[in-house]
């Protein structure tokens, strides 16, 4: 999949899966931090993102420490998904 299309799809999946009802796709910049001051996601959201990768992309994140790098932004998530192919 084209990297830009993958990022767009990821943003839509993040909004749906995490019930970010007041967030729109255009609110999520590719390099915007997903946690902390960015989207303000919490620890349950982090677990939900791990499930999202497994459910939609068949990728298992087995080391929780990896999550800090993978889920930094939509850019890092997309890079990780493409590196697993």
């Amino acid at each position: 999949m084209d990297p830009q299309a993958l990022k767009q799809q990821l943003k839509e999946q993040i909004i749906t899966q995490l019930n970010l009802e007041e967030v729109k796709v255009e609110d999520i910049a590719d390099d915007k931090p997903l946690f902390g001051e960015g989207l303000g996601l919490d620890s349950i959201d982090a677990l939900e993102l791990i499930v999202l990768l497994e459910r939609h992309y068949g990728i298992k994140v087995t080391d929780p420490k990896q999550g800090q790098t993978i889920f930094r932004s939509v850019n890092t998530m997309a890079e990780f998904i493409q590196s697993q192919k």
Binding site: Q17, L18, N19, I44, D45, L47, E48, V51, E54, R55
Partner: peptide
């Protein structure tokens, strides 16, 4: 349905 629990 999916075999995966939703933490949320």
């Amino acid at each position: 349905g999916t075999g995966l629990a939703s933490p949320a």
